[in-house]
């Protein structure tokens, strides 16, 4: 099945490993905090003794979610990839639902570089390509910030060189 997502002539460029770290941080913190809040709520509820195992179950579920997120984030990060070809940009992502997006440079309307607070803390940014179609969802997560800026310039340059009217 892998030939479906084989690189298009050029090798897939991976995204930064710090993306996985960020996802792990966010995922684990929200799992632990969520579990803690639930346990706290349960502690205040007048639970019958027969349900005394419930807080433990919540704790275990929270830890399990954190562990799963830790494991999944690495794989998810590795599923991201992009390839800059002569005329178009390929992006692949997703584990369960896999997607390849191919955008011709000549079709780009504009390029966004976005970075949230956490992204900035990790020195990452996300690059989004927009075409005249609303359905085009072409974005690359977790590029190192300088690489993202260079990529934006490169894309813009190529877009101008190959620009075609609507």
């Amino acid at each position: 099945m892998d030939e479906l997502f084989a690189p298009p002539g050029v090798d897939w460029q991976p995204v930064s490993d710090r993306l996985a770290t960020k996802i792990r941080l966010v995922g684990c913190v929200s799992a632990v905090v969520g579990a803690a809040v639930l346990v706290a709520v349960l502690a205040f509820l007048p639970l019958p003794d027969s349900l005394g195992w419930l807080p433990w179950l919540v704790t275990i579920a929270g830890v399990a979610a954190a562990v799963w997120c830790w494991w999944w984030a690495g794989r998810w990060r590795r599923a991201w990839g992009y390839a800059e070809r002569d005329d178009d940009l390929y992006i692949k992502h997703g584990l369960m639902f896999r997607t390849i997006v191919a955008v011709p440079y000549g079709r780009m309307q504009f390029v966004d570089v976005l970075a949230g607070p956490l992204d900035r803390a990790y020195g990452m940014a996300r690059v989004e390509l927009h075409t005249a179609s609303m359905q085009t969802r072409a974005r690359i997560l977790g590029l190192p910030a300088d690489q993202a800026a260079r990529m934006r310039d490169r894309l813009t340059e190529r877009g101008e060189a190959r620009a075609a009217g609507l």
Partner: peptide, 10 residues
């Protein structure tokens, strides 16, 4: 053609 996408679910 603006862009081409390929999707595959589990």
């Amino acid at each position: 053609t603006q862009s081409v996408h390929l999707h595959q679910g589990p």
